[in-house]
Design a protein around this nucleic acid. Sequence first.
DNA 1: TATTGTTATACTCTATAACTATA
DNA 2: TATAGTTATAGAGTATAACAATA
Lengths: 141, 141
Amino acid sequence: MNRPDLGAMLMRLARQLLAVEQPILEKHDISMWGYAVLTGLGDGPDEPMRTQAALARSIGADKTRIITTLDELQRRGLIEREPDPADRRVRLLRLTPAGRDLLTATQTAIRAAEETVLAQLPPADRRVFLQALQSLSDAAG
Amino acid sequence: MNRPDLGAMLMRLARQLLAVEQPILEKHDISMWGYAVLTGLGDGPDEPMRTQAALARSIGADKTRIITTLDELQRRGLIEREPDPADRRVRLLRLTPAGRDLLTATQTAIRAAEETVLAQLPPADRRVFLQALQSLSDAAG
DNA sequence: TATTGTTATACTCTATAACTATA
DNA sequence: TATAGTTATAGAGTATAACAATA
């Protein structure tokens, strides 16, 4: 079995994915971190996320790194962000309907672009690949 | 099929791999870019690589980004780097025996670390996963 | 004039630490 | 005193452009 290093192959493919997604994000007028935040807020149950630090951790970012992103998403009416009455240090975060709409539209376009990359795999291999990747990615969390 | 975005899963797994490999690289006293360069020079046929720009492209780097790396690898006697007599603008690049030894030792350790990550996959899935990843990664080149 | 390699510079991204407000 | 959020600053990493040498 002679193959490139696992890390090298992952980096290469991830880089291509980023390049493919970049124009889609621009077209939907959202940054990569902005999209990551919308995804992080949209994925879970319908309850608001309870702290910015938890959101940052869930998307693999530093808590200081997402603040300007949150500022802008809030300014554009895509998220709500209000102090928790029970502990006013905490900010409750949730998508607005507009934020949900933007997330859905963007994610649909991104999934379609992923299809063009995955299309070269035979359906059976593709199923195993995605399942294995998700399992490894979950374990990496 | 409800799963995270392909790009998000790849980034997450790649980040874990980098974290796992970092201590190994330090132990072998080589930087990530240094290791990438050694790998790029060691992979192909035995002939020297003909330009630094070609090497940079093959490992996904900018030609200006690898120069300090090449400087250090040469200073440490891990690579040879000499003007091509036929076109003195060009630098012929190749591993020295010491560079080959370091590459082999480091790669062996990195492969072993990858095993611990891949071990959670059933052997059949693992085989398909690696094959599919290599195919996608090659196509991304 | 075109190409390879190099250097310099500016820019972005990221990490760290200090600060505020609440508890 | 401890925690959530914010701001400021310094450092690393990266991209761009200008330059030197050779063709």
